[in-house]
Design a protein around this nucleic acid. Sequence first.
RNA 1: GGGCGCGUAGCCUAGCUUGGAUAGGGCACCGGGUUCCUAACCCGGCGGUCGAGGGUUCAAAUCCCUCCGCGCCCGCCA
Length: 600
Amino acid sequence: MVASNPSGSAPSSFDPWEPILAAIVLGLERALTTLGVLATADAVREGLDVEGGPEGDIAFPVHRWAARAKQRPEEFAAQIASAVPASPDVGSVSAKGAYVNFTVEPSVLVSATLEGAIGLGTRWGTRPDTGGEASVEHTSANPTGPLHIGRVRNSIIGDTFARILRAAGTKVTTQYYVDDMGRQAAQITWIWAKPRSEWPDTVRAAVEGLEVPGEKPDQYRGRPYPAVSAYLKDHPEARAEVAGVLGAVERGSPPPEHRPLAQSVLDGMLVSLARLGIRFDEFVWESDFVKDGSVARVLDSLRRAPHAVREENGAWAIDTSGYGLPKDSNRVVVERSDGTSLYVTRDIAFHLQKFGRFARVIDVLGADHLLHARTLEALLAEVGEARRPEFVLYAYIHAPEGGKMSTRAGTAVYLDDLLEEAVARARKEVLQRREDLGAADVERIAEAVGTGAIRYHVIRVAPDKPVVFRWEDALSFEGRSGPFLQYSYARASSVLRKAERDAGPYPFDAARLTDREELALVRVLSRFPRTVAYAARTAHVHAVAGYAHDVADQFNRFYHAVPVIRSGAERESRIALVAATRQTLGNALDLLGVPRLDSM
RNA sequence: GGGCGCGUAGCCUAGCUUGGAUAGGGCACCGGGUUCCUAACCCGGCGGUCGAGGGUUCAAAUCCCUCCGCGCCCGCCA
């Protein structure tokens, strides 16, 4: 039989397990009814263990049903097993202990999975447009210097989640909230607006000799920051100048250099993110909410909010005692005594704008912003907004020597340094293995391997797990790593290339794929749609990383266990299996932002 | 002090949302595998009181309570 595109009968939300599960649920429903126990399809479905157990693909623990039938579980399981009517989708039904185990008819799963993967191509594992629109705000790092790897966890989680949501049928707009109103941004403007001759000696000394022609503007502009910060500590007159810049920004009339400086630093940061495949649909400037009057409108409604309080010095606050915020004070100041706004206030304006445009508003935030998130929710309630953002929180990456990554303390590990190191190491590996390649190909592969290693290293761990950065782990190209996935993808590509079957079609005979490792591979592949849906629903982006490793792992076992090109009657079917693997692994790599490589 | 999160072999980690049979991987270590489709690979071995205690349940890594350790936060900063 020839692989056909099943999208005609079932739209691209295609899960090979659905018909099988439906048959099992129906069988169990009938069996239970026969045995005198009332069962709804939903209740049966709920009790099904779709990950299976040691005895089959799908397991059904019968304890609660046995209790209802007043039977011993072991006996009841046996009764159910013999009462389940035969179905072509289900291979075997058996009872073991208190469990009824179902084993699928392999050819059914093989056909459905290969047809899904090959027929749907890049749409395999995805769902059609569900009509939902979401904003995913991520990164949003202050444009004051190069990104460090702790910050990049935000970017990688956010970008990956955006990709997964798109695969799940949601229209996503990624947003970078550019904070040009912070003290650090004011410090950048303060120092760079002066001619170099007027810089404090300590600051000039700190940058001298480090500047290299052609370096990225975030590196160039951000370099004085630690020295500036130290200088300001004991120079009150300079502090007053910075405060002047900040005040002008807050009043909506920043110095002319302010925005261009922030923009140039941002441009430098974006160059590095682009190497990781991270780009943004929109940039939203915090100061614009002051300029366009929306912050003033927010302040207006906050002053009339149910729990608004006027402080003695004229500042406005919200009494948050009814919201149970975990803070010592039960007040949140929303307007300073000088009439200017604060970060939370502006964030309200931003969120009101988001709610006006998107059905779902998703914010990727470091765990240190949890209180901010709770405060935001309280203040949204105060201004009469019923909707709330969804927060994806992640724990920080700690410096190799422990503690927070800090630019000022010099403990930060910068993305640019990590990129350089990873790509250099990848280059070395490529050169060792491939004497046949030209310089351009070596470089292309090294870049893909180095950046892929970084993305995978960060995304493989659950977001709420605190991580200590270790160079040797981040630069690992073996085992559970990005390059291992890329290598497996390249290996699958290589097989297809050598078989001169790069493009398909991929006809197969499901009955020819009976080897243990072949069927194990099909089972892994068949889980792809379920995995994508799970990751989209729970924001457990790392589930896709674990899944991709499972695919690569089982593919390599298969590869070593059975020949493909040199096989006989199974050849066509095995080629199709390799093609399905390549498609699945490729789609998973796309979701992770790890570059595909056809050879390495 | 309060709130939130984390704790799974020497190290890293999955599973916890929705309780289910023998807790999956990776690194390191030990022993094997390349005249054969890419050895960034594969096979075998070693290694676990799932932080501790209690509770719920036929059944707990998973749910509840207490405690311990670690992290983050508690500003008219962002």
